[in-house]
Design a protein around this nucleic acid. Structure first.
Ligand code: FES
Ligand code: FES
Lengths: 159, 159
DNA sequence: CTTAATCCTGACTTTTATACTCAGGATTAA
DNA sequence: TTAATCCTGAGTATAAAAGTCAGGATTAAG
C-alpha cells in the first residue's frame, strides 16, 4: 500500500502554491522546485496535468508562473491526486459490466473489500482541502466528523 | 494509490482457507492455487510469511495443507496485509525521531496528511474480519460505524 | 519401504511501472 | 533582444514487484 511521487509531489506543490501565491502574483515552478526539492522537469509534467484539470491557471513569459484557479478551501486533496495520477482504484476487475477479475466467477470474493477500501480513502481525501493542510488540520483522523452544515473539516483534539 | 499482489493474493488465499477449511481438514496450496488463479510457488512464499505471523498453521506431508490459527472472525484484513507486505505507510520520512523527509524542514507540510490517511486505511482494515468477507459485509463504506460494545462490523444498507 | 503429495526455503530471473531526463519550442516582461 | 518562464513529447534509467526454479524435508497411504 503506497502512494507514488506523482500524487505526493502534486500535493506538495499545490500546498506550496497556496502558501506562497496570491491572486495577483503567480508562483514559478523553479521556486517550487527549490523549496520542495523536486526536479523542475518533473514539476512541468505534473503542472501540465493540474492545469488541464483546471486546478491552476498559468501565466507564461518572464515573471510567469501558476496560481490557483479556485480558493484554497475549494480544492480538495482528492481533486489533486485524481488529476495527477490515475485515480484511486483498488479493485482490479475490468470496468466492463458483469465481468470480474477471474475467469470463472462473476466477482471475486474480495471485490467488495477493495471497493469499500477505495471509497474510504476517497471520502477521506475529499474532506480535506488545501487550506486545511495550511492550517495543520488533518492531524487527528479519529476526529474527522462529517458536518452536513458546511463543506469544511470539523475537528477537535482527541487525547 | 494501489495495492500490490502480495497483499491482494494473501487476502484472497486466506478467504479461501476460511471458506474451504475447517478445524480438522487443512486446505492445500495447490487447491488454493487453482481456485484463486495464483501461481503455486508464489503462494508458497506468501504462506511462509502468514505462518510466521501465526495466522495459519501448517500440516506437512501428504494430505497436508494449512488451517487458520484462530477463528475467522478474529483475523482482520489488517493482520493479513501487515503479514504479507510491508505495512501501510504513506509518509516517507525516516523513523528517526525529529527527522523529516526534507533537508531543511523538521517535517514537511504534508506529513500530517499522509499520516492521517494511513491511519484511516489501517482503522478500516482492522474493522473487517475474514468472516465479514465471507458474509459479504464490507459492502457499504458509509455504513461503517464503530461500535464500542463489540469488535464486529455493524452495517446497514444505505440507499 | 516406496511413492507421491505436500510443505519449506533461498536464490534467481523477468517484467513492468515509476521516476526522471532531455531537447526543443512558444510566450512575454523588462 | 534577452532571459525567464511555460509547454510538450519522447526517451532513458532505475528500482520494485512479480513470478520462477531447484532442491530438500516430512508424512500418509498403499
Ligand atoms: S476485484 Fe472486482 S471482481 Fe475481483
Ligand atoms: S512525510 Fe514525514 S516529514 Fe515529509
Amino acid at each position: 500500500m503506497k502512494i507514488g511521487t506523482k500524487g505526493r509531489y502534486a500535493v506538495m506543490a499545490m500546498v506550496d502554491v497556496a502558501k506562497y501565491g496570491n491572486k495577483t502574483t503567480p508562483v514559478s515552478l523553479s521556486d517550487i522546485a527549490e523549496r520542495q526539492e523536486i526536479s523542475l522537469s518533473y514539476l512541468e509534467q505534473l503542472f501540465c496535468k493540474l492545469r488541464k484539470a483546471h486546478l491552476v491557471s498559468s501565466m507564461r513569459g518572464a515573471l510567469g508562473g501558476y496560481l490557483l484557479s479556485r480558493s484554497s478551501d475549494h480544492i480538495s486533496i482528492a481533486d489533486i491526486i485524481d488529476a495527477a495520477e490515475e485515480p484511486v482504484r483498488l479493485t482490479r476487475c475490468p470496468s466492463i459490466k458483469g465481468k470480474g477479475c477471474m475467469k470463472n466467477e462473476v466477482q471475486c470474493l474480495t471485490h467488495h473489500l477493495w471497493e469499500g477500501m477505495g471509497n474510504q480513502i476517497s471520502s477521506y481525501l475529499k474532506k480535506i482541502s488545501l487550506q486545511d493542510i495550511l492550517d495543520k488540520k488533518s492531524l487527528e483522523p479519529c476526529a474527522l466528523i462529517e458536518s452536513p452544515s458546511s463543506n469544511h473539516l470539523e475537528y477537535s483534539t482527541c487525547s
